[in-house]
């Protein structure tokens, strides 16, 4: 699956995107964040405060407890500030 990061999440992770193959126990966006944070200080720092994170699964904006089963693209970002 392709992961995309935007705004300060992108800067803190240090990547705009990355390709990953999560293990079977990763069922939700929150599980994915836990898995990524487990062996990367940068990911752990970016994902430390879950209240400041929003997500999209295959470009659908969903809460962090949403399923990532079969997802091709998951984006992680702060609350939006356009307009």
């Amino acid at each position: 699956m392709e992961l995309l990061y935007f705004a300060w999440v992108r800067e803190t992770v240090g990547l705009g995107h990355q390709q990953v193959t999560p293990p079977d126990h990763v069922a939700t966006v929150a599980d994915l964040l836990d898995w990524l944070a487990a062996d990367s200080d940068a990911h752990r720092a970016a994902f430390a405060d879950r209240a400041r994170l929003r997500a999209a699964v295959d470009q659908q904006f969903l809460p962090l407890d949403a399923s990532v089963a079969g997802a091709r693209e998951v984006a992680i970002f702060p609350p939006v500030t356009g307009g």
Partner: peptide, 14 residues
């Protein structure tokens, strides 16, 4: 349109 754009469209300002 402008109220919903502010909360629903994925833009970030720096």
């Amino acid at each position: 349109l402008i109220d919903r754009l502010k909360t629903d469209a994925p833009f970030w300002k720096r």
